[in-house]
Computed example of a mutant assay.
Amino acid sequence: KPLLLYVFLFYWHFLNALFTVEAPQSLYIVEHGNNVTMECTFPVNGKLKFRDLSVSWEKKDELKKQVYVLLKGEEDFKSQHSDFRGRIKLLKENLNFGQSLLQITDVKLRDAGFYHCVIGYGGADYKTISLKVKAPYRTITQGIVSTGDNEWKLTCQSEGYPQAEVIWQNGEYEDLTDKSSTSYETGSDQLYRVTSTLTIKSRIDEIFYCIFWNKELQENTSA
Rank of each mutant, 00 (worst) to 15 (best):
D189L: 13
E93H: 15
Q169G: 00
L90S: 07
S196G: 07
H81E: 04
K65W: 07
Y115C: 06
S56I: 12
V36K: 04
Y115G: 05
R110P: 00
D175V: 04
K92Q: 13
T199R: 11
I88P: 03
E174W: 07
Y11H: 09
L27R: 04
G143P: 02
F77P: 00
E39R: 10
K92R: 13
S158W: 05
Y115Q: 07
E172Y: 09
W152R: 07
A23I: 02
L18C: 14
L91K: 15
G33C: 10
Y137V: 04
L53V: 12
P2M: 08
E219N: 09
K215M: 02
C156Q: 01
K134P: 00
D111T: 03
V30F: 03
T177V: 07
Y115L: 05
A164E: 03
T199L: 00
K64M: 11
K127F: 00
K132C: 02
K89A: 15
L27W: 01
E93Q: 13
F212V: 08
F8T: 13
P24K: 01
R110G: 04
R51P: 02
S82M: 06
S196Q: 06
Y192T: 02
N214E: 14
D205P: 00
C40M: 06
I119Q: 03
S188L: 08
D178N: 12
L101W: 02
K215H: 06
Q25N: 08
D175A: 11
P136L: 13
H81M: 04
S56P: 00
I129G: 03
F212L: 06
F77N: 13
G148D: 11
L217H: 05
S146R: 07
V194K: 01
T128Y: 00
G123A: 14
Q163S: 12
V44W: 03
N16P: 01
Q25L: 03
I207H: 08
Y28T: 02
E93A: 11
D111M: 04
E159T: 10
L90V: 15
D83R: 10
Y137H: 08
R87N: 13
S54Y: 02
L101Y: 01
D61Q: 13
E206V: 02
I167W: 05
I207M: 07
S56C: 10
L15H: 05
L101C: 02
I144C: 13
Y11Q: 14
K89G: 05
T182Q: 04
R203K: 15
V107Y: 09
H116V: 05
D178H: 11
A17E: 08
T147K: 14
V36C: 10
S158I: 03
E22H: 11
L9N: 14
